[in-house]
Nucleic acid binder design. Sequence first.
DNA 1: TTACCGTATGAAACGCGTTTCATGTCAATT
DNA 2: AATTGACATGAAACGCGTTTCATACGGTAA
Lengths: 320, 320
Amino acid sequence: MTNIRDIAVMANVSVTTVSRVLNNHPYVSEEKREAVMQAVKQSNYHKNINAVHLSKGKTYLIGIVLPYSDHPYFGQLLHGIANQALEYNYKLVLFQTNYQKEKEEEALHMLEQRQIDGLIICSRTHAWNIIEEYAVYGPIALLENCKSTCVSTTYIDHFHTFYQALEYLYQNGHRKIGYSINRKSGVSSQQREAAFKAFANEKELSNHSTYIFDQCLHYEDGEKVYHQIKGMADPPSAVVVTSDQVAACLVTCCQKGGIDVPKDLAVLGFDNHPMAKYMEITTMEIPHEEIGKNLFKQVIQSHTITHKKVEVQLIKRKTV
Amino acid sequence: MTNIRDIAVMANVSVTTVSRVLNNHPYVSEEKREAVMQAVKQSNYHKNINAVHLSKGKTYLIGIVLPYSDHPYFGQLLHGIANQALEYNYKLVLFQTNYQKEKEEEALHMLEQRQIDGLIICSRTHAWNIIEEYAVYGPIALLENCKSTCVSTTYIDHFHTFYQALEYLYQNGHRKIGYSINRKSGVSSQQREAAFKAFANEKELSNHSTYIFDQCLHYEDGEKVYHQIKGMADPPSAVVVTSDQVAACLVTCCQKGGIDVPKDLAVLGFDNHPMAKYMEITTMEIPHEEIGKNLFKQVIQSHTITHKKVEVQLIKRKTV
DNA sequence: TTACCGTATGAAACGCGTTTCATGTCAATT
DNA sequence: AATTGACATGAAACGCGTTTCATACGGTAA
């Protein structure tokens, strides 16, 4: 492998001059510039990027922590991040955690060891204070609503969004409202639960715990919801389903099982996945790509901590 | 930042000894080992991984080239790769190409510059000879059937698989068979086309070009297929759909539109996505995770070039 | 004419862990 | 007693691009 010193010798200039040419610095005469370019071309020289990293103390690598990459929600998020990364000439390092603490830890360690310049956490399992501790090693952007002074965030107001969804169902005459969530222990789920309680209280609805369906993330989980509702003596008249995948499955099940949507059961999804558009499912549109883009920008703007709220929009279709 | 020399001073040993301790090399006395550990803990020392990379000439980074990460097919593939990567302590660098040549090129350049130790290409747009040229810079694993001497491959025998699917439809009495594909120009699509032609010839079927549906990758593309078939005077009695997403949409459309599946139209999907299982779609099961795992293993076994054929299995359900 | 600035160029230091090679013990083998 | 080998330890070289600092020249402003 030829290195920068070889080039310097070939072009009969100093190493510094070669570096200047390679990085487009001024103060290099045209002839020397030419000579360097010539040598570079002749020897098919490429910088050893690891040396650049060591020298600069940067890697141009951003870590992404997310539970699954084969889930549309995270897939789209990743899509948004990846597009932005390419534009800014950064590369991504993927940490697929499956919600395992150790794997999230790996990412944090990599930040600590400066193998990545920053970290985007799409879903955390570590406690807040732990995350914040690592922020001293490099910028962290988090997909969560938390007014931290050392971690940037992009978030959805889950409380308000959920409330809004419930309100819409209420306006459409529903009084027995259920909902499905991903992980009961998840941060967003807790906010949604709070919203539901506040809503039930406000509207003086009975707070049926049987109307809550946990662990609904994948397509097939919609069937579980269907069966549970089907088996109820006093089923809900409407459900908020926090994933269009699950909603799609539920709706399909209902069609097959003779439950009329929305007459017998109204379904309000989340995401506005293409699937929802096509199946005419009423849903709360979450701009995943925008979120991904913003998270990325926040993490590379390491000097300023920002908090960006992303708006969610109700898309009225035919399942409510 | 403390570095290895600081530690050496603190522990009153040489830099070499510190390195030995840190890398678990033998021939270090217990007391010196202790002293080093003590110093490391006290100063909260962490190696500068960039220096390690420069020194070792390795990055423990593997690049992944794939068109979309928000598509279930590639999502699952990525899932398999990512899990394996975590196990082997490698990190991934994602190149989402959207089938753009330049972005694929970026990945190849990164290999050339040794910023990644190897490259997994899930779908290429560059010509073969170009890819092979870059193999001198580092190991490349490709998801494609090609007996290269410098690039490892994991592949599906698309010809045989497609033929098998067609055969199954034929056995079930179908003589007017259509199919949908992702990109007509794609490598796998061409193999499938060849299989179809061979099949049509073998069985003396008329080779209806109107029965070919191109650009079917996303869920909603199933609707296009539905409408096209619906509008035909002489529609096919069966279709092979090379994505369960698309098949699911098509089946749902048929249900709504009064086309009986499989009586009026048999549908044979590809992937065996959970969606297919649930919707009871007959499909060719493609073991994405296994493919991902294998690609990863191939790329880190840089010394040996291997070619692994992955078996696809027909899952008989209710849409044929 | 002196002072000062823009342009041009290179030597050397810097970032830092790994690895090779040389050297020195001490116990075991011949 | 001489040789050999396992064990210990450290100096120095190595990987390589970036950046700081010093130096020198030509020209313009004072």
